[in-house]
């Protein structure tokens, strides 16, 4: 996904003179390539995220579309005020590429885990937040980025090993959810997921279908602006809604879904269960998959959450 994203920036820069790239002491290959083929449009800046975001704002004020790339925690937390004031307040077309969103940097410990990035970016007016599910979807998404107004936070999942689950025939539009699997029958459950959470949600839905539990899987790649219309369409008739995100349960996709349902389905809300990282800093290392297992974000735990939710519904 990371490679696909970098390659796409290069490709976009080739056909659009407004596109520029700024790294913050990370990922030199694309900078080298761009420096060689498009001199003056790519820079490797130092470990200076506050400056880098301000510099990107300055470039955008002059008509450029800078893609800024560094580790997700540092491009969100370290320079939050620059993101808020320089990018969001001025509503500038800067694209923040956060490498290793979620639990990707598991072995490096909690300083490197971006588990609240979606929450804090979501609180900023004008910000768009996109977490695609695989490298192929990344390509379709990136093609739309040059002409999207305002800043975008692009959350990258793990670099090389994500399986491809997206399907070109389902298309991709920023801000429009993709129904990856549509349930048939009566016991309809709605799984709403983002990023590589969708991979897990889809696998859980397959397992549940074998047991006769039908789930619709809605891939909410754009967490902001949330596709409320699609959400309501499917949630209104669901017996259970489960949100799945590789992110704290505080303020992310689950919160956004709940806010929309509370506002738009008063008195008719289906039961909702949010799956995510609890309100803690991770206390284990290992791998992204292992931490996702610990926090109940792998397919068996998602499936069990659905079974339990339906059980409670029947009991009630």
């Amino acid at each position: 996904m990371r490679v696909a994203c970098g390659n796409k920036v290069f490709e976009l820069a080739q056909r659009d003179p407004r596109v520029a790239y700024i790294g913050s002491d990370l990922d030199p290959p694309i900078v080298k390539r761009m420096k060689a083929e498009m001199p003056g449009r790519a820079w490797m800046e130092g470990v200076s995220e506050q400056h880098v975001v301000g510099m990107a704002a300055g470039l955008a004020m002059e008509g450029f579309i800078p893609y800024v790339h560094t580790i997700a925690t540092f491009i969100t937390r370290r320079c939050y005020e620059q993101v808020a004031v320089d990018l969001c307040m001025h509503n500038l077309p800067v694209r923040l590429i956060g490498n290793g969103g979620g639990l990707v940097y598991a072995p490096l410990g909690p300083t490197h885990l971006a588990i609240e990035d979606i929450a804090i970016m979501r609180a900023l007016p004008n910000m768009t937040i996109v977490a695609v599910c695989d490298a192929e979807e990344m390509k379709r998404f990136m093609d739309q980025t040059p002409d999207w107004p305002g800043p975008i936070y692009i959350r990258l999942a793990k670099g090389y090993t994500d399986p491809v689950i997206s399907r070109p025939e389902l298309g991709f539009t920023i801000g429009k959810a993709i129904v990856m699997r549509e349930a048939a029958g009566r016991d309809r459950v709605l799984l709403v997921s983002t990023g590589v959470g969708t991979t897990r949600a889809l696998a859980a839905a397959t397992d549940l279908a074998a047991e006769g539990i039908e789930c619709t899987v809605m891939h909410m790649h754009t967490v902001k602006p949330l596709d409320v219309e699609a959400l309501l369409h499917h949630a209104a008739t669901a017996r259970l809604v489960v949100t799945v995100e590789e992110h704290t349960v505080v303020g992310g996709l689950g919160s956004a879904v709940l806010e929309a349902l509370v506002e738009h389905l008063p008195g008719a809300m289906p039961p909702v269960k949010r799956l995510g990282i609890p309100d803690v800093f991770a206390h284990k290392y290992g791998s992204q998959d292992q931490l996702m297992e610990i926090y109940g974000l792998q397919p068996p735990a998602i499936a069990q959450t659905v079974r339990d939710g339906l059980q409670r519904r029947r009991a009630a």
Partner: peptide, 19 residues
């Protein structure tokens, strides 16, 4: 540029000067 939060002008100025 909208300023008031301090330390923002020079990074923005660098970006504009480069542009």
């Amino acid at each position: 540029a909208s300023t008031g939060a301090l330390g923002h002008g020079l990074p923005i100025g660098v970006g504009r000067a480069m542009a």
